[in-house]
Amino acid sequence: MDVHVRGGPAAPFLSAADLFATEYEIDGDVTVRVCEDPDERTRVSHDEESHCLTISRQAATSAMARELALHEFAHMHRYEEAHPSHTQSTREAIYLALAGQSVERRTLSHCYQIANHMKDIYADDVWLDVVPADKLVAFLESSLAAAVADTPRDRGAWDRLTPATDPDINAVNAAFALALVERHDLVGPDHPIYDLAHAAAEDAPHVSFEGFKRRFRTLARDTDESEYRKALVDVTRAYAVASNGDSAAD
């Protein structure tokens, strides 16, 4: 596993590569591109022979840098092994799920975010076996706390919010966070993340928090392309129903 870091600190990425290589392989060369834009989201692109991780300097120098790198290396590994979550066309599945429906632009954006959660579940299944998850749990907890704090109590103002503070997707994000920690037994039932997640759920009562948590948590570990496509289509339809103001089916 060859890792080349450009524009930023190499230590967290090389450390992550050494840890990752103890259990898994990445055949293609990996380039890490650190950029100055603090709003640049961590993302990975691929070609037939290599991978490129783009990450902001803020993230690359944070306490979570090594864990972020491990997470992205896991995406690369899933891509190389042609895992259905990383080969299935997200656009194709979402448009299949929403065929014949009229949805708002924000809802469509949220559907893509939910599809990314499903990819993340399978990536996290890889790297959470490599290092302790304490930092990940703290990150999920702080992210939920910020989202709950940013959600306005005035329901009439919700349509003016960015997707990051939309109560509907906040509830699904909370379901994803709990699904992840329960899938890997990362916390006990009295952990504060449960209170935060349930607070997010209460802000969007028409979204089936428990239903989405179950969908994420029970994703088949040995899924095939057909099974994964069905899961992605089903969760997309469920969210579209919830966003229209109806209760999402469990």
Score class of each variant (00 low, 15 high):
V30T: 14
T31P: 00
T31F: 00
V32C: 04
R33W: 00
R33G: 00
R33N: 05
R33V: 03
R33P: 00
V34D: 02
V34M: 09
C35L: 15
C35T: 14
C35M: 13
E36Q: 14
D37C: 06
D37S: 10
D37K: 08
D37H: 06
P38G: 03
P38H: 00
P38D: 07
R41M: 07
R41I: 09
T42I: 12
T42C: 13
R43C: 13
V44K: 01
V44N: 01
V44P: 01
V44T: 12
S45V: 11
S45N: 02
H46M: 10
D47E: 03
D47T: 08
D47S: 10
E48W: 08
E49G: 04
E49I: 03
S50D: 05
H51A: 12
H51M: 04
H51P: 02
C52E: 14
C52S: 11
L53P: 03
L53S: 06
L53R: 02
T54L: 09
T54H: 03
T54E: 06
I55F: 01
I55V: 14
S56M: 03
S56A: 13
S56V: 00
Q58N: 05
A60T: 04
A60W: 02
T61P: 05
T61F: 02
T61D: 06
T61Y: 01
S62Q: 06
S62E: 06
S62Y: 02
A63Y: 04
M64Y: 15
M64W: 10
A65T: 07
R66A: 12
E67W: 12
E67M: 12
E67G: 10
E67I: 09
L68Q: 04
A69Q: 07
A69G: 08
A69Y: 06
L70E: 04
L70W: 02
L70G: 00
H71K: 04
H71D: 10
H71N: 03
H71R: 08
E72N: 11
E72A: 08
E72F: 05
E72D: 11
A74D: 09
A74N: 07
H75A: 04
M76N: 07
R78H: 01
R78G: 00
R78S: 00
Y79I: 09
Y79C: 06
E80Y: 07
E81L: 14
E81K: 15
A82W: 11
H83R: 05
H83S: 10
H83W: 08
P84S: 04
P84A: 06
S85W: 11
H86F: 15
T87V: 14
Q88P: 01
Q88E: 12
S89K: 10
S89Y: 07
S89T: 12
T90Q: 10
R91S: 13
E92V: 08
E92A: 14
E92K: 14
I94H: 09
I94W: 05
I94M: 07
Y95D: 12
Y95A: 09
Y95H: 15
Y95P: 00
